[in-house]
Amino acid sequence: MNLTTLLEQYGKLYLTALFTTWTLTAISFSAAFVIGILITVMRISPVGPLRAAGEIFVQIFRNISGAALLILLVYALPYLNLLFSYYTCVIIATSLIPAAFCSEYLMSGINTIDAGQIEAARALGMSFFQIIRNIVIPQALRSSVLPLTNLLVSTMLTTALASQVPVNPRELTGLVSHINTHAVGGVLAFFVSAFLYSATAVVIGRIGSLIDRKVRILR
């Protein structure tokens, strides 16, 4: 099968698959980002149990393998009378794992903030939440643009998990296995998906370093 016939036959499917991968990535990354910030606030809070819970969350989800987590969500949760659709399970898995890494990156972003700034804020009478909202989070975000860009790419790679369960429409990895089990797509079917993935990754990387150059705090 050459490229023209492949694209003639499966071109539309590839476009839908690319769009599905993008959608999954966008939803998961947004969720991961929000959860990551919440977990980070828990980890730096003065409240012992919250700190411990945040730490446990991060250790669980940065160390669990994606396949194990997805299988637990899809096949084990129904035994606890918790039924989610395949799509929801994929979103949960591809959000929780990047969320843990997001929190790790934010923590190291926070550590770059000079302690004197926080002392100054406290001397001005700001409360803990004011300090977090106005001083810590903005700076932590600005110095974690590059790690977060990498996180966006690795979130996209994580969404390949969706190929392990029947979701419709298929994303890029699922499509390759679909084509190769139904027709002899050969190397080309693989390379089209691979190209779409890495082109997306390169574009994300470029935009990330552009933003980073704009917002990075020079110290």
Binding site: V153, M156, L157, T158, T159, A160, L161, S163, Q164, L172, T173, V176, S177, N180, F190, S193, A194, Y197, S198, A199, T200, A201, V202
Partner: peptide, 13 residues
């Protein structure tokens, strides 16, 4: 760049 932007599962397939 190519290997970094592609999920492992795709290589496995």
């Amino acid at each position: 760049e190519f290997t970094r932007g592609i999920p492992t599962l795709l290589f496995i397939y």
